[in-house]
């Protein structure tokens, strides 16, 4: 009998842990500070033109809410590094993600705020490390395969979409600079 009670207690504890696993892991401003060694550059904005908005909507499978996106950038040429704070809904709540792009590749991706009760496993390094060095292919898909996490499919999908958008936005600012 005692054994069963322990099992029930363990299951309940796991459940409550899962429910509490979401939250603010890193404030967006702290993320920017960390990325730029506590001396972040001034924020810039990218206004979303019609075509770019359409491309983003194609990636998201829904309309993007907003007319401009803020980013931080330092350096130029091969040393150019841009940081983005983007949000996408997993199941019902938005997942806030910080993404750093360098040399057209993802250098770092971090889940900053997770508000859903399930799928928080996407915050772990074993998942986010898969994105490192990922590029954007011509069809706006990632150059690398990202493994799914069972039970966190929607969160995985949301983070993958954000990674593709960050690469697309970085590509856009690079094209605008080159013009």
């Amino acid at each position: 009998m005692k054994r069963y009670l322990y099992i029930i207690f363990a299951i309940l504890s796991l459940n409550s842990f899962a429910a509490q696993a979401g939250g603010v892991y890193l404030q967006p401003d702290e993320f920017i500070n960390q990325v730029f060694d506590n001396a972040p550059p001034k924020a810039r904005v990218l206004w979303l033109k019609k075509e770019l908005k359409k491309q983003i909507a194609d990636i998201l499978d829904h309309k993007y809410k907003g007319l401009r996106i803020r980013y931080w950038q330092r350096g130029d040429g091969d040393n150019r590094k841009s940081a983005w704070i983007l949000e996408e809904t997993g199941k019902k709540e938005p997942i806030t993600t910080g993404i750093v792009i360098k040399d057209n590749q993802i250098e770092l991706i971090k889940v900053l705020v997770f508000r859903e009760s399930r799928g928080w496993e996407v915050r772990h390094d074993f998942f986010t490390d898969q994105f490192k060095q990922a590029k954007l292919k011509k069809d706006h898909r990632l150059s690398q395969t990202i493994d799914n996490i069972s039970g966190a499919t929607l969160s995985v999908r949301a983070v993958k979409k954000l990674a593709r958008i960050a690469l697309l936005l970085d590509q856009t600012i690079q094209n605008e600079t080159d013009k």
């Binding site: 404030q27 809410k65 007319l67 401009r68 996106i69 704070i85």
Partner: peptide
């Protein structure tokens, strides 16, 4: 928001 009520951006000011 724009003058027409379009959502432009939500910005955290904590920085």
């Amino acid at each position: 928001l724009s003058y027409e009520g379009e959502f432009i951006e939500r910005v955290s000011t904590s920085i």
